[in-house]
Amino acid sequence: MKDRLARAEIVRLDGQVAGLEYGTIWVKTEGSQYGVTKGLLRSFRFQVNGTSVVLYSPESAIPFYRKVELPLANGDDVCLAIASEALDGQHLVYGLRHAADPHVYIAFAAGSLEFQPDRQMYYLPRLPRFWGKSRWRQASRFGIAAAMAFCVFRYLAHGERGEDGLSTYVVMNSIVALALAAYLLTIVYGSLRWRLNLPTPRQRNLLAVLHVLEVSDTGKICAV
Rank of each mutant, 00 (worst) to 15 (best):
L72G: 01
F130M: 03
G132K: 05
Y34D: 15
E21S: 08
A147M: 11
Y122W: 14
L80R: 07
E160W: 10
A107L: 07
N173L: 08
Y34M: 11
R119S: 12
R204G: 00
Y189Q: 11
E85L: 06
A146H: 01
Y189L: 09
A110Q: 14
Q120A: 14
A208W: 00
S32M: 06
L210I: 07
I62K: 03
W194F: 07
L20N: 03
L72D: 00
F142I: 13
N205R: 02
L178D: 13
E69Q: 13
Y94T: 01
T29R: 06
A83K: 03
P63A: 11
V11W: 07
R66G: 14
R195K: 15
W136T: 08
E30H: 07
N197C: 12
E69I: 05
R45Y: 01
Y169A: 10
A147L: 11
L196D: 10
A99P: 01
E160N: 05
V36R: 08
R193I: 02
G111T: 08
A86I: 12
L113R: 14
L70D: 02
R45T: 09
E160V: 04
P125K: 04
H103P: 00
G31Q: 04
R154T: 14
L178C: 13
K67C: 10
K28H: 03
D77T: 14
I62M: 02
H91T: 03
I10W: 07
Q33P: 13
G95F: 08
F153W: 10
G165D: 06
H158L: 15
T168C: 11
G39D: 02
L5T: 04
R12K: 04
L192Q: 04
A179P: 04
E214R: 09
G219H: 13
Y155N: 09
R154K: 09
D101V: 09
G35N: 10
A86G: 13
Y105Q: 03
G89D: 13
L196F: 15
F130E: 01
Q33K: 15
A18D: 10
L40V: 11
L185F: 14
R137N: 06
I62G: 03
N74S: 12
R4D: 12
A149S: 15
Y155I: 15
S112F: 02
T24Q: 09
P201N: 09
T168N: 14
N197D: 14
G95I: 05
W131L: 02
L5S: 07
K67Y: 15
I144N: 01
M172T: 12
F142N: 05
G35E: 07
E163M: 15
D88L: 12
A110G: 11
I106F: 03
V188I: 15
A177R: 03
S174M: 10
L113K: 08
A83N: 13
V54A: 04
T24W: 00
S43K: 04
L13D: 10
R7E: 10
Y94W: 06
V212H: 00
S216N: 14
I10L: 05
Y22S: 12
V53H: 05
Q47E: 11
E9N: 12
A8Y: 01
E21K: 12
N49F: 00
V27H: 04
W26Y: 11
E9I: 01
A157Y: 08
V224Y: 06
